[in-house]
Write a protein that binds this DNA or RNA. Structure first.
Lengths: 318, 318
DNA sequence: TCGTCCCCCGCAATCGCTTGCGCACGGCCG
DNA sequence: CGGCCGTGCGCAAGCGATTGCGGGGGACGA
């Protein structure tokens, strides 16, 4: 690799000067700067982030520990984060925690040994990683899955009001028996959506019936005329089950769901969905992380971004 | 951060010894090793990849420059690559080239300055990055999109035979007018699939008619009874167009497509698809890259992995 | 008792860069 | 003409690890 030494030699200056013209960290005579720049050009010098990091302490890189990289929602999230990070001159070290607490732990250690300047994390339930990060003072922001204790920076979707809106929509269409199919129990997102579901019922003057909440479609069959599906994974299962049982979505069963998917318009009927503001969540998360890196003393912030209702036909509307 | 110095002090040895017990690079008396390990435990020492890299030259990290991170197919690919890399003790620096040659160039420079040990690249068409990597001697493997010149390691799907199979399937069902909707022109994958399409026609005793090849569904309407769709992006468009024009897939138009999608079973009729061996492509790519890193003199290898036909109903079968 | 050989381990150079200090040189003021 | 101040640069000390080389001491054979 080309080093500063070679550049310096070619330009006839010391490496100190080369460093200063590169970083613009102290005035350099115009003519000297010219020579240095030319030398850089000629040698194709790119700098060595490793060496620089060793002395500055920073790496201009962020760790991104995602629970399931192949998930389409996370894919979008990753893309959004990558864009924002790149724009800000940071690069991303990606690692898949595979929803496992151990992997997460290992991931965090690796990121730490790579000295990333900060970490973006979608925590798994039994996460031991978070306390560790906190203890080590690594700037961290939680993405998508938020912790109840608001002692860490975090950004994710608003769930309670949004779910309530979904329920209200069904209620406004005249449905009195509205069910909920929930995602993995134990994760905060699920709990919040259940809460929103209850809230929506209340607002619509309907009462809560725990029989109408399940983790799959089957137990609800025949009991409900309207259904809220609370995440992507279960949506697939629900749609499959509906097909298997000959339940016609939109007519036999009004359905609204979380998880905007690219194929929402391609199934019959097109799905009415709550679309997460993925793009914005990603962007915001990076910004938040960067400002925390800049000022570690800031008070932790929790940002909730409102999803948008994509109104199509699975709810029975036309 | 905890440094080797602290560990050494606590254990009452020199940092040399600490280094040697960590890397097992020379025998250390059992009792000494014990003390060192205990000290490591107590201090929570994790090592500093940065410092290590500076001296060893390697970083145990791979660069992954993908053309479109949010694309579901690439998401799976990334996940597969991440898994394999992690298993081998490497971490991934992810960067999105956004299908642009400049971004790609910038990406490569960044990866280089980060001294990644190797690069996995899904090249864009006008890629200037590849020659640069080659010139710099950075171990590189091309993924998914292959270059015709087989002078670089590369792994991707087999396209010609697979597309031919698709055509044959339609022909076997009795279709005589079989169309092709292609993806972006200019990328090798597209060309190969067109080739496979011609090959399939030939084998079925049908003749090539350039009117039956287009980049969208519309120009083909009324002309064909069977259709091969050559990639995910256009699939979405074709399905949308079919719906808009009231064309019933499976009955009015037999359809087979590239791009296995998670919702293949959820649309009506379920899609007959050619499923790329994503998982395997990712794994193989990493392995190939690692073996190149191990032995830079190896002859370049091109590996094609066969996709699998997922037979469902959109082709008109039952 | 002395020389040899091994076993264990520490010294110090090195990787490529940033940065606090301080020197040299010229111009200006008194 | 001497002292001061600004401007422009270079010296050298790290950053935290790896690693070639060499030294000390105990065991063993002669």
């Amino acid at each position: 690799m080309v080093t500063m030494k070679e550049v310096a030699a070619l330009a006839g200056v010391s490496i100190t000067t080369v460093s200063h013209v590169i970083n613009e960290t102290r005035p350099v005579a115009a003519s000297t700067r010219e020579r240095v720049l030319k030398a850089i050009e000629e040698t194709g010098y790119t700098g060595d982030a490793i060496a620089r990091s060793l002395v500055t302490g920073g790496t201009k890189s962020l760790g991104l520990a995602v629970s399931l990289v192949s998930h389409p929602y996370f894919a979008e999230l990753i893309a959004a984060i990558e864009n924002e990070a790149t724009q800000s001159g940071y690069s991303l070290v990606l690692i898949d925690t595979r929803e496992s607490a151990e992997s997460e732990q290992a991931a965090v250690r690796m990121l730490r040994s790579r000295r990333v300047d900060g970490v973006l994390l979608t925590p798994t339930s039994g996460s031991a990683a978070l306390p560790e990060l906190r203890r080590l003072g690594v700037p961290t922001v939680l993405v998508d899955r938020l912790s109840l204790a608001q002692d860490t920076d975090q950004v994710g979707p608003e769930n309670v009001q949004a779910t309530s809106t979904l329920v209200r929509h069904l209620a406004d269409l005249g449905h009195r028996r509205i069910g909920l199919v929930t995602g993995a129990p134990g994760v905060p997102t699920t709990d919040e959506r259940v809460l929103g579901y209850r809230l929506g019922l209340g607002r619509a003057g309907l009462k809560w019936d725990e029989e109408l909440v399940a983790q799959s479609l089957e137990p609800l069959l025949g009991k409900v005329s309207g259904l809220v599906v609370s995440d992507h994974q279960v949506l697939m299962a629900v749609l499959g089950a509906a097909r298997a049982h000959g339940v016609r979505i939109g007519t036999d069963l009004a359905l609204v769901t979380y998880g905007e998917v690219e194929w929402a318009e391609l199934v019959d009927p097109p799905l009415t969905t709550m679309a997460q503001p993925v793009e914005e969540i990603g962007r915001t998360a990076v910004r938040l992380l960067l400002s925390r890196i800049a000022d570690p003393e800031r008070a932790p912030e929790t940002i909730r971004l409102a999803p948008a209702l994509k109104h199509r036909q699975s709810c029975g509307c036309h």
